[in-house]
């Protein structure tokens, strides 16, 4: 009896035996690139993250901690989204901001519950406008800050 995964010799049964399944596989994987808009998905994707033009001035929705004097503290993806992935934190923040004030406030409170730094008394959900080329490390003040909402950190 044939045991799956234990292939033995089998003569290729003509060109179709080889080409048909391979052509189907190739078509499935290549398909997203030939859509009107290159599609993203999983596990089939056109990997479009580099495909779109973007300028040097970028808008980044994020969340920061504020201490009693109002100084800004970076929170890190673990506090912002509960995981260690930067892009997940960025996407969760962007989506919360796009969904409006209520969603932003709910997201802010979620973040505040995860803050473990005693110096941070408040969380601010904001969009920072920055020149990515001139300020790769985000060392300088943003060009513009748009505050969406704030919430208190309760011990």
């Amino acid at each position: 009896m044939y045991r799956g995964g234990d292939t033995t010799a089998l003569r290729p049964q003509g060109l179709a035996y080889w080409l048909a399944p391979l052509a189907i596989l190739a078509a499935v994987v290549l398909w997203p690139a030939f859509q009107r808009e290159p599609a993203d998905g999983f596990p089939i994707s056109s990997y479009p993250m580099f495909a779109r033009r973007s300028g040097t001035v970028v808008r980044l929705a994020t969340a920061v901690g504020l201490d009693a004097t109002g100084d800004v503290h970076r929170l890190g993806p673990q506090v912002i989204s509960g995981g260690d992935e930067v892009v997940l934190a960025a996407e969760q923040t962007r989506l919360a901001v796009e969904e409006g004030a209520e969603s932003s406030q709910a997201f802010c409170r979620e973040i505040a519950r995860r803050v473990r730094d005693d110096d941070i008394v408040r969380v601010e959900v904001r969009t920072e406008v920055r020149d990515a080329l001139a300020d790769v490390r985000a060392d300088h003040d943003p060009i513009e800050v748009i505050v969406h909402t704030r919430c208190d950190v309760t011990p």
């Binding site: 973007s54 980044l60 970076r74 912002i80 930067v86």
Partner: peptide
């Protein structure tokens, strides 16, 4: 386009404290 993407990705990491 590539340079801007690389810059964007890095500034985003910095903004998120990573």
């Amino acid at each position: 386009i590539l340079r801007n993407k690389v810059a964007f990705d890095n500034v985003r990491k910095a903004v998120f404290g990573a």
